[in-house]
Simulated assay, not measured.
Amino acid sequence: MPITTRASLLKTRHITHLLTLCAFVFLLMKEAQPAEAHYINFAELSKAQQATVNTWVNHAIHATEHALGQLKQSHIIIELNPKYFTLESVPWASVIRGDQDGVELHFNRYASAATLIQDWTLYHELAHLYHPLFNYKDFWVSEGLATYLQNVIMFNAGLISRAEFTHRLWSGLQRGKLQTRSINNKLYAVTENMWSLKAQQRVYWTGAAFFIEAEIALNSQRSPRYTVSELLKQYQKCCRSQNMQAKAFMSELDKISQTAIFSNLYQKYKARTDFPTITKEQISQLHF
């Protein structure tokens, strides 16, 4: 049997500590890796167009994770649908739900990387990956959250100024308010029939108002003090699931923030027939 000496014990401990440190560093490096884009229809693009799309998509993923935290999933399916002639750089996009969520992109194949990066659409769709799929009557929650967060992401990435951030949200709220005058049924009922009613402005911007109001309430908390973005970062780590009712999602955000802000607002908003009152000054003073 070998004799264990003090020197050998110290050497063993040193090696153990070194291995533990290496493992910790490896985990940090692993956690720091952004989600990777896995493309569909990539071969339909020329080499130059592939480079443009890569630049655009990777920039959007980095900007989104910088603002909202690392996604729980390690890769994102990006289904490409390049168009030859479009007036808009990204005329349409949607989320793909599955074992690994992704994004379907319809875009102008001849648009420059700079033009695509300045477009809000991809940031909106990537923001959807931070919440689970809700029932259709609660799509005002998901669309409102993504509409609010697309502006948070773009501001944090330096793509829009604080003044532009305020202008975009304020202008959107005015559009939502205007449409509510003619489509003033309960919000959940309007959401269920959003496409037939053409009520996107009412639905999206009432939902955005919900999260602006939640942000205002969070800003007023003394301790603990969170923002919506910080709550979503924590939510990815502790509670993210593929399928969850909006009400349960609100409860999780309340647990993390140690408040009842989200559940109370949800009960207030889901059946409302009017449009929320939020001032331009309140938006300009948001801490997010």
Rank of each mutant, 00 (worst) to 15 (best):
Leu126Gly: 05
Lys255Glu: 10
Thr86Met: 11
Leu129Ser: 09
Asn54His: 14
Ser8Trp: 03
Leu9Met: 12
Lys30Val: 06
Ala63Pro: 03
Phe275Trp: 05
Ile61Trp: 08
Leu9Arg: 14
Thr55Ala: 10
His38Ile: 04
Lys198Ala: 14
Met194Asn: 11
Trp205Val: 04
Asn264Arg: 15
Leu21Glu: 07
Gln73Arg: 02
Val95Arg: 15
Thr5Cys: 03
Arg13Glu: 01
Tyr235Asn: 12
Ile216Cys: 04
Arg162Tyr: 05
Gly207Leu: 06
Leu45Lys: 03
Thr166Trp: 01
Gly172Val: 08
Thr147Met: 09
Glu65Leu: 01
Thr16Val: 09
Arg202Trp: 01
Ala67Arg: 10
Tyr39Gln: 14
Ser89Cys: 05
Gly176Pro: 01
His14Val: 04
Val90Ala: 06
Phe288Ala: 06
His17Asp: 05
Asp254Ala: 10
His62Gln: 14
Thr86Phe: 00
Gln234Glu: 10
Val90Asp: 01
His106Asn: 15
Ser284Val: 05
Thr166Glu: 06
Pro224Gly: 02
Pro34Val: 14
Gly172Pro: 02
Glu36Thr: 14
Ala127Gly: 12
Ala163Met: 04
Arg109Ile: 02
Pro132Asp: 02
Ser223Val: 07
Lys83Pro: 00
Gln282Arg: 13
Leu45Thr: 09
Asn156Phe: 00
Tyr110Val: 04
Ser251Gly: 13
Ala51Gln: 15
His75Glu: 11
Glu281His: 08
His38Gln: 13
Ser284Ile: 04
Leu133Met: 10
Ser220Phe: 00
Val53Trp: 07
Leu10Thr: 05
Phe211Ser: 11
Phe249Met: 09
Ser284Lys: 13
Ala248His: 12
Ile153Ala: 11
Ala35Glu: 00
Val152Gly: 14
Lys47Tyr: 01
Leu71Phe: 06
Leu45Asn: 07
Ala35Tyr: 04
Ile283Phe: 00
Ser263Asp: 03
Gln150Phe: 01
Ala271Ile: 00
Lys72Ile: 06
Val228His: 09
Lys47Asp: 13
Gln221Thr: 11
Glu104Trp: 05
Tyr39Lys: 15
Leu232Cys: 12
Phe262Arg: 15
Glu164Lys: 10
Pro2Arg: 08
Gly102Lys: 08
Leu80Ile: 12
Asp101Ala: 10
Tyr269Ala: 10
Asn151Gly: 08
Glu164Arg: 14
Lys11Val: 08
Leu9Ser: 09
Ser241Cys: 06
Gly176Met: 08
Arg97Gly: 03
Ala246Ser: 15
Asn58Met: 04
Thr121Arg: 15
Tyr148Ile: 05
Gln221Tyr: 05
His66Phe: 12
Leu169Ser: 10
Asp101Val: 01
Arg13Asp: 04
Arg162Gly: 12
Ile256Val: 06
Lys233His: 03
Ile15Pro: 02
His59Glu: 07
Tyr136Asn: 11
Trp92Glu: 05
Arg162Lys: 14
Trp92Tyr: 14
Arg97Thr: 07
Ser263Gln: 13
Thr16Arg: 15
Ile278Ser: 07
Glu143Lys: 11
Ser94Met: 12
Lys47Glu: 13
Glu88Asp: 13
Glu281Arg: 12
Trp170Asn: 13
Ile216Trp: 02
Thr52Ala: 02
Tyr204Phe: 07
Met250Ile: 04
